[in-house]
C-alpha cells in the first residue's frame, strides 16, 4: 500500500465517521422532538451495542472435532468474556474490565494454550 493509498483510506474513514456525527445536526434539527426519533434514540443505541458484542464474538466455536476447543476462538474467548462481565458487574470500572479481560485473553492464547 502506497502512502497516497493510506491517506485516501484515512480520508474515507474520516468522512464516513464524521457523517454519522454531523447528520442529525444538519438533517433533523427540526424533528428533534418527533416521537419516532425519541423512540429510536431510546432503543437503538443499546440494540446496536449488543449487536456489536455478538458481531465481535461471531467466530466463537466452543466445541470442535468432538472436544472442547481451546484455541483462540474457543475456551479463551468464553473465559475472557465472562471475566469482563464479572469484573464490570463487580467494580463497574470500564478500564479494569477491559484491561483485565484483554490481559486474561492474551495470557490464555499466548501462554496457557499456545
Amino acid at each position: 500500500m502506497s502512502d497516497l493509498e493510506l491517506l485516501i483510506f484515512i480520508g474515507v474513514c474520516t468522512l464516513a465517521t464524521f457523517l454519522t456525527r454531523v447528520l442529525p445536526f444538519v438533517a433533523l434539527s427540526r424533528q428533534a422532538d418527533h416521537p419516532l426519533i425519541l423512540h429510536l434514540g431510546r432503543y437503538l443505541p443499546p440494540a446496536v451495542m449488543a449487536i456489536l458484542v455478538i458481531y465481535a464474538l461471531r467466530d466463537l466455536t466452543p466445541w470442535s472435532a468432538g472436544q472442547l476447543n481451546v484455541s483462540a476462538q474457543g475456551v479463551p474467548l468464553i473465559l475472557a468474556s465472562l471475566a469482563v462481565v464479572f469484573l464490570h458487574l463487580w467494580r463497574r470500572n470500564a478500564l479494569l474490565s477491559i484491561v483485565g479481560g484483554t490481559g486474561l485473553y492474551m495470557v490464555l492464547i499466548q501462554l496457557v494454550w499456545p
Binding site: 475472557a80 474490565s97 477491559i98 484483554t102 485473553y105
Partner: peptide, 16 residues
C-alpha cells in the same frame, strides 16, 4: 496476539 480482544471487551462494557 489477543490485543484485539480489547474491542470485544469495550463492546461488552458499553452493553452492560
Amino acid at each position: 496476539r489477543g490485543l484485539d480482544f480489547a474491542l470485544t471487551a469495550l463492546f461488552i462494557v458499553l452493553t452492560l
